[in-house]
Design a protein around this nucleic acid. Structure first.
Lengths: 352, 352
DNA sequence: GTGAAAGCGCTAACAA
DNA sequence: TTGTTAGCGCTTTCAC
């Protein structure tokens, strides 16, 4: 390979200078034409310049432009989870990511995914924030305000526009947020089970470090209370998402003198394990024990039996977050923060 | 607009100049200290400069540095799929992404995910390539060389180092590649079924536009041939991944005068649907019909019955791709392209 | 309408 | 060793 001009990349890319030279105009005019402003240009200039751009296959250098404009067309997605890479691993966040990346791209923005692990040193984050790489940030904190404050504090201190996804940050940060009504979803699912005549409903809770786990649990309790059905702590199980804990929960529930006739698992993933375990013990679903999940991930409709669950509009969450952050980045007079709570919907399938 | 501070972000970030001023040294020295070269500095300078950096909480502007060095510490991941966002949606690519992002991050690189849709206009890609945002590219083309040539052609023309994942590009591009031996995996899985006494093995193929689909199919055929078991076209079904096609395939196979005793689905997702459909028809798995899948996504071990399948080292694929692309970016004398074929492994579980 | 030129923040020659 | 300074490619003020 011949190494004529540039250090590593072979051919030198044309610059705005080259375009100007070829078109026989000044660099200013080229810039005006490209950006359609801020000064007007004659049609003839436009034509000449555009021809030169085509001929050279010229594309502006994003870094030069970024340096000058302090605008990078890049939005960071920061996740803050216990496992470094659960961003991708769960179908749940895959939905959010898909919505987010898609909408950003439509609007000409790039998406820099940066997964942070809870408890991890925040210095890499600091570096990312201060390096002026990002126009805006979408952050997905899964814990309640106190736990995520350190993270959000750093982001706030950076003065980079930020939108929270799933959980709002503490009010004082003034970040907009896109969340969904998981309490209501759990309420609806529980109410459905009650309407089917179930009076003893086991609840597999999930990792209690997640706020959403508390919200969903509250929905379950509210529904019971509202329908005057006795709530019993022995029906509730779980401190984490693990398969073993979930299976132990099923065993525990079945060992009760009056075992539940339905089990509400606070995530689809756990619901699958619950069904798995019930079947291992030769208990049919939904005939002997009904099971409902939460999230409506793709597999929910595929599973055998298909899973009754609460549909969370994951795609829409991502899209709305993209819209909000771009609005904030592009609007100079800061838009007042807003919190959007998206509705969820109970989906009845075979398992309950 | 007040020129003193910053345009949108309130406080102005400190620059290298500020550090130099505070430390009472020249900007060159600050740069030397930060980058530990290219000129030596005295320990006293190092101390003074580092103190100033701490005091100001200084972090270099990535875009200024990028403009100067032509190095952005950013690797693009370009996927080329039929659906715009299947990157995230499948557990399959989630595994690859996790490995890739994780390793890049460890080595101080950022990851810009850019999903391309097959048939889509390549102009956005062109823009990304020419805008000097990326140090390197990891591309995941799912089709065979001729179909992906246009895409790879553009990448090659940009002279940005590139590594192919899953499928190698045509030789002439000279890209390194990380792939896995899916033909062998299908061979092993088929051989296992044969060893269990199955002689009529249905094959659900998947979307034939994917190269991997052909590879896996070839493995199935090879195993049959090698063991002198009759291959019959009526045992093969499918032109896409859809649930309906898969279900129809099961119905078709069962309707044969001599229906298969085992079904090999070329992806775990389809295997789930196959089992689903078999159960709908009250056929027990694996007693009446054995089922094996391919990929070993997370759900495979969770499913009821747990799925016998071919384990693909998705994480390792991503990690190795990261290693290769960084090596290429950071090594000036171009490293010769290499193709790495990772081994796969048949995992026996309950379904077969 | 157009051109000249001053920087954005950084690195690395070139001087000292 | 350290300081001075010329750019990287772009936008935009200022002059014409």
């Amino acid at each position: 390979m011949t190494k004529t001009r540039k250090s590593s990349n072979g051919a030198k890319r044309p610059t705005l200078q080259d375009v100007a030279k070829l078109a026989g105009v000044s660099t200013a005019v080229v810039s005006y034409v490209i950006n359609d402003g801020p000064r007007p240009t004659s049609d003839e200039m436009k034509l000449r310049v555009n021809k030169a751009i085509k001929d050279l296959n010229y594309h502006p250098n994003a870094y030069a432009r970024g340096l000058r404009l302090k605008r990078t067309k890049t939005i960071g997605l920061i996740t803050y989870d216990f496992s470094p890479m659960s961003v991708y691993m769960s179908s749940y966040s895959a939905g959010i990511l898909t919505g987010l990346t898609g909408r950003l791209r439509e609007k000409g923005y790039f998406n820099l995914v940066s997964p942070m692990t809870i408890g991890e040193d925040l210095r890499p984050l600091e570096e990312l924030l201060q390096s002026e790489r990002l126009d805006g940030i979408v952050v997905r904190p899964i814990q309640a305000p106190p736990a995520t404050d350190a993270l959000l504090e750093r982001i706030a201190a950076s003065h980079i526009p930020c939108v929270c996804i799933e959980r709002p940050g503490a009010d004082r940060f003034g970040f907009s947020a896109v969340t969904y009504d998981d309490r209501r979803g759990a309420y609806d699912a529980t109410e459905y089970l009650l309407s089917q005549g179930h009076r003893r409903i086991g609840y597999i809770r999930g990792d209690t470090r997640f706020v959403t786990v508390h919200e969903r649990f509250a929905g379950y309790q509210n529904a019971l209370r509202h329908h005057r059905v006795r709530y019993s702590e022995e029906f509730v199980w779980g401190e984490d998402w693990s398969d073993s804990t979930t299976r132990a929960g099923v065993d525990h529930l079945l060992s009760l003198p009056e075992p539940p006739t339905a089990i509400f698992a606070a995530s689809d993933g756990m619901a699958f394990v619950v069904i798995n375990q019930l079947r291992k013990r030769h208990i049919s679903v939904p005939e002997e024990v009904a099971v409902v999940g939460f999230d409506d991930i793709e597999m929910a409709s595929l599973f055998v039996p298909s899973l009754s669950t609460v549909h969370v509009p994951l795609l829409e969450i991502g899209q709305l977050a993209a819209d909000l952050i771009i609005e904030q980045v592009e609007t100079n007079p800061e838009v007042p923060p807003s919190t959007h709570v998206l509705p969820v919907q109970f989906i009845r399938r075979e398992s309950a």
